[in-house]
Every structure is written in C-alpha cells, then in structure tokens.
Design a protein around this nucleic acid. Structure first.
Length: 614
RNA sequence: GGUCUCUUAGCUCAGCUGGAUAGAGCAGCUCACUUCUAAUGAGCAGGUCGCAGGUUCGAGUCCUGCAGGGAUCACCA
C-alpha cells in the first residue's frame, strides 16, 4: 500500500484510540517534511485541537508515540511547534528500492481498457509551422505519452485546415507570379516554399491597396467614410478587409478561386492538391525533427460541411431556434455564454457547425472515452460553447471532452507578429538549438573521440532537450516569454541538466566491474540526501497521475529537474564505486539505477530522449 | 461595456487539498576539478507575493472590491 495511505490510516487510528473520534482522511494534512527538519513526512496537528481539547504540541507528542508503537513503517518522530515529523524506516525505503531499481517500467500502469483521443497541432496549410505550433505539439505529444503510460489507449489526431481563402492566396500568387518554380527547382523546404507565396500574395495585395488608396475612388471613399477623430492611416488599416472583399482585384481572384474550389473545379483542385502535398511533405520533416507523429489526420476539406443534420435534428428537439432570416442559434445566456450562431441564414455551416459534426464523426470512428483538444486559449469561449451544445444534444461522449488550453508564446520584446516578421519559425529554431548544442558539446571536449555522426546525434538530443524542456516547464495555461538565447541554455533548470544526471549514472555503471551485488539491506544509516532521493523516486507514479489529471506536463518537468538536482548533490557528496562498504556500494548502485530509470521515463513523458553520454 | 484569465526576486518561472523562516534557475559576486563526466556542487546578495478589505488558530493560496496586462464577445476559421 502507498505510504501516504498507511500514514493517514495510522493517524486516523491514533485519533480514534486517543480521543475517541472517527475522522475522514480528508481532515488529515500530510506533507513532506521541509528539509531543514528531521523526518520524511509531517502531520499538521492544529486541526485536531478541537477534538482533543489539547495543545498542538501535546497532541503531536501523544500521536507520535502512538504511531511509532503501532505503525511498522514509522521508525521515529519529533515535534516542532505543533508539527509532527515522522521518519519512515530505512527498511521500508530499501525494500522499495529493491523492488523497482531494475524496473524500467516503474510508474507505468497496465492497460485499463479506456481510450483517449488527443487532438493537437492542427495547422493551416498556407505557411510553415512556428513557435506557437511547437508549444502546441509538445503539449499534445506529452499528454499522449502520459496517458499511454497510465494504461490508456491513445489516438493522436490532428485536423488539417487545408481549405479556405488563405491557401487560395498562396495558390493564386504562385499561379500568377511563380513562373513554374517548385520546391525541387529552388531547393526550398516545401512548406516554406508555399509560405513564401502566401507572403508574396500579401505583398502584392498591399501594393495594390496602397495604389488604390491614392486613386480617385479611394480618396472619395476616404472623404466619405472616415470619421473625424480617425487618422487616414487608422482608417485604411480598419478598412482592409472590406477592401479585400469589395474592391480588390487580387482579392476577387482569390475569392473566385475559393468558389471554384468549392465547385470542385478540376484545375483549381489539382493546383490545390499539388500545393498541399508540398506543405505536408514539409510538415512531415518538422514532425520528424521534433520526434512526434499522428495516428489519424482529419482534413477540413472533408469535414467542413458536417454537422448540418445534427443542427436540424437539434432544432426539432427545441435545443436551437431559428430567426426570421433563417439563421439558427442557440441561447446560452443563462449560462453566461450569450447567443451563438450555429447555421447561417443561407443554410451553410460555420466553424461551430463543423466542430459539432467533427466531434460526432470522431466519436463514431473511435468511440473514445476522453477527448483532449490541445488548442490555444484564444478559443476558450468557442470550446465552452461547443461542449455545452454537445451536452444539450445529449451526445454520449460529451462529458469526456476537455480543452487543454495554453497561453500564447511571446518574445522578450513583445508578441510575435507575422506582419513585422518577428515570427519564430519552427525549423529555424530546431536547427539553431542543435547547432548551439553541438558547439557547446564540442567545447567541453567530452565528445572528441566520437564520430561525427555520434556527435550530431548527441547534439540533437541535448539541443532538443533544451528547447522542449524550456517550453514544457511552464504551465500550459500561462502566457510565456520565449527568449531564444535562454532556450539554448544548457546549465541550470534545463533539459540537458536532467540528461546530465542520467549520463553520469550511465558512466558509473559502465565503470562498475563487480557483477554480483552485495546485499544492500546490510547498509544502514542512510544519509539525508540518500533518503530524500529514494523518497523522490517513490513519488514518481503519483506525479504521473497528477500530471494527467491536471493536463499539465510542467509537473513532470519540474519533478525531473528536482530529482536530477538531488542526484547531482548526492553524486557530489557520496562516492558510489568507492563507497565505505560493499553494502553501501550496492545500495548506491541500486539507487542510481532507480534514478536513471525514473529520469529516463520522466523525460520520455516530455518527448525528450536520453543520450548515453554527452 | 460583458465574460474569462494573469500579476511572486533585475529576468524566466515553481509554490498541490489554506500550515513551519515564500523557493528554483538565469544574470551579479565568492569558492571547489591529481576524484565515479565541473553541462556539477557549496555560498553571498536579491521579496511589503499588484493594492485594499474580509474569512481563519493560521492566507502567496479562499471570498469581495480596485488597479494594471492579455484573450474573447463575427452569418472568419
């Protein structure tokens, strides 16, 4: 049984025996003991003063005596200012260590028959992935790993936004100005190639718009529509969309292309398929570099018309209402979510319609018990509404839906803006961290005897570790600041710091020549660092569960960092191979193995690989 | 304006169901490599936890109000 439960039961029994009252375990406050005090776990006794009608110190004293006498795992106690600090017996820790030291699956749970679907990444196909996608991808991948470790069957999906005006812009610009060049002919990574033409469209459009502003029609419109407080510049900025829709020649051509696409015009469809295939090829490269994959891709071009039948049925059931103009709405004002459109007056779908349809489609395809949507927090309102609608529709899967909402990634000097060219490109960033890792690795001299390939492999491990850890250590919901300089750091609270602990252990194990282990149970008098280290390893399964429950990989990242930190301290303070006794050596070797397994597993939950040396 | 969210050291972040003197890393200043990998360890310095009330034996944590930042409130996706 779990030590925390043993302790809680012991405390409950103590209260029953000493004060004659039954208490629930929720009334017991149990924490790990602060490191400046003696002990492993601490019971806060203030809560019992009413029951016992005694002072906290006296309660703690009585309770400590009772617990040492009656609970086998508790070896000693001390009382400080009403806090009862309990020491767990060395035997308990050593037994635990003996059980798990060689178990590489420690922390994982057997299959539980439940299925969870994780939707993440979900890019647009008109330009390459950027830093924001990286945060999304890392979170999604990590959640998949965590749920997999807890025994769930995991289905990783993404919805590819492969249609719409944006991709038409890239298509049009390439068609008009591309002169037949291709990713192959230019040597540009294919998704970047398509992105280049998207930017190309915007540039041409901007020029057209600027010229139009100076034209007679433009000046007349300005004089007519601009209000007095507004500057001309501000007016034109705001007017851009209207111009695009009502006046722009390029805009008209792009919209025309979209209409042709919807009418399944063969020429447009072929062009569309070609450009999208380029983008997918490019994305594939980025996914591979990040070490992530998907089980199933849903394409918006297949799903964008879904959901209408559900809306119609819902209207009959009185969940939605129709306005005079024919548009269909849901009223969520009582739930503080306002009224929301679900079908346009011309009978076509909106985003919400499509998401309702897609949710049902995926439920039909996979019947997941749980669905995690990894999507930025700017869509919180959308998902709240979506989930409410699905509940109202009494969809059986509606209760298992969760929006893993994450905050924006900002740069030290502000937001990323594509217009200002401050968007951090995913591929550039990955290349940069690996390059930096290689430079730092070579600088240390540890890799000199290795081949070029091995050096690159290690630099890939450490560089990506640095980047991934930097992003995942921040709680998902928080807006974070991404400093490119810090993201390649390899000292302190970083991925490589954790990897380094593992590498040190591996190095020791390589040098250990004695195959047969002395009996570590003969080792007594564990140091505080040693005990703390076992205790931390012991917590790992709990951390995994908590991270899953809270949808928060950062808990695992911080855990790994703290475990590595304790190990580094232990490593500095104690000699493993030249320990005082064979028993001590055996214990420390087992402890090191347990730490190595746990760190490897923990980083694996974050999608970070472990090098054997670095 | 409505709704949601955030505000902790110079910077980036932890702080679980309320518990002991609020913790890490980076940056700054010291110190420790003839030792199992110094991508490490030890130390110094750095805080009125945005502000004001309230609940409690006890509040960074819960409640209310205020200030400041962000998001969202499209017949866009």
């Amino acid at each position: 049984m779990d030590i925390l439960n043993i302790l809680k039961e012991g405390v409950a029994a103590a209260v029953r025996e000493l004060y004659g009252e039954e208490i629930g375990s929720d009334k017991i406050t149990l924490t790990t003991t602060r490191k400046e005090f003696e002990g492993d776990y601490t019971v806060v006794t203030f809560a019992f003063t009413r029951i016992a009608k005694k002072k906290p110190d006296d309660i703690a004293q009585e309770m400590g005596e009772y617990l040492v006498a009656n609970v086998e795992e508790i070896s000693a106690f001390n009382v400080i200012k009403g806090f009862l600090n309990l020491s767990i017996s060395e035997t308990f820790w050593k037994n635990f260590l003996a059980d798990i030291a060689d178990d590489e699956t420690f922390g994982r749970q057997p299959a539980n028959g439940q299925k969870v679907m994780v939707e993440y990444c979900s890019p647009n196909t008109n330009k390459p992935l950027h830093l924001g996608h990286i945060r999304n991808i890392l979170l999604g991948w990590s959640m998949s790993k965590i749920y997999d470790a807890l025994g769930y069957e995991v289905v990783k999906v993404q919805i590819v936004n492969d249609r719409g005006i944006a991709i038409c812009k890239s298509m049009l610009a390439w068609q008009k100005f591309g002169e037949g060049e291709t990713p192959e002919s230019t040597g540009i990574k294919p998704d970047h190639f398509v992105g280049k033409w998207y930017v190309g469209f915007e540039t041409k459009f901007k020029a057209e718009y600027a010229a139009w502003q100076l034209s007679k029609a433009g000046q007349e419109l300005l004089a007519e529509k601009k209000n007095e407080k507004q500057s001309a510049e501000a007016f034109w900025k705001k007017y851009k969309n209207t111009y695009f829709n009502d006046y722009s020649i390029l805009g008209n051509e792009a919209r025309d292309m979209l209409l042709k696409w919807e009418a399944k015009d063969e020429g447009v469809r072929n062009l569309w398929m070609m450009m999208n295939s380029w983008v997918y090829k490019g994305f594939e490269g980025t996914f591979e570099a990040l070490g992530v994959s998907f089980d199933k891709l849903y394409y918006e071009s297949d799903t964008y018309l879904l959901g209408k039948d559900i809306i119609e049925q819902g209207e009959k059931d009185g969940i939605f209402f129709r306005k005079e103009d024919g548009s269909v709405w849901i009223d969520l004002e009582e739930r503080k979510l306002d009224k929301k459109l679900v079908l346009r007056s011309d009978g076509t779908s909106v985003y919400m319609t499509q998401d309702i349809g897609t949710a049902k489609m995926r439920a039909d395809d996979y019947a997941p018990d749980k669905v995690i949507y990894v999507v930025g927090n700017e869509q919180e309102y959308h998902f709240k509404v979506l989930f409410e609608i699905l509940k109202d529709l009494k969809e059986p899967y509606a209760d298992g839906l969760h929006h893993l909402s994450y905050g924006m990634v900002n740069l030290p000097d502000g937001k990323m803006k594509s217009r200002e060219g401050t968007v951090v490109d995913a591929d550039d960033l990955i290349a940069e961290v690996v390059k930096e890792a290689l430079a730092q690795g070579l600088d240390r001299g540890e890799l000199e005897e290795l081949s070029k390939e091995e050096q690159t492999e290690i630099a890939t491990f450490t560089g990506l570790a640095s980047l991934k850890f930097f992003i995942l250590k921040v709680k998902a919901e928080k807006t974070m600041v991404f400093d490119p300089k810090e993201s390649v750091d390899m000292q302190g609270q970083t991925g490589p710091y954790v990897q380094y602990a593992y590498v040190r252990i591996k190095s020791v194990l390589r040098k250990n020549e004695t195959a047969a282990q002395a009996n570590m149970s003969d080792y007594t008098g564990l140091s505080a660092v040693e005990k703390h280290l076992v205790q931390q390893v012991y917590t790992y399964p709990t951390i995994l569960e908590s991270a899953a429950k809270n949808y928060d990989p950062a808990e695992i990242a911080m855990y790994c960092y703290n475990l590595a930190k304790s190990f580094h301290k232990f490593f500095y303070d104690h000699s493993i191979l030249k320990a005082e006794s064979e028993a001590a050596k055996a214990f420390r070797l087992q402890l090191s193995k347990a730490v190595a397994n746990t760190l490897k597993s923990g980083l694996d939950m974050l999608g970070i690989d472990m090098p054997e040396r670095m």
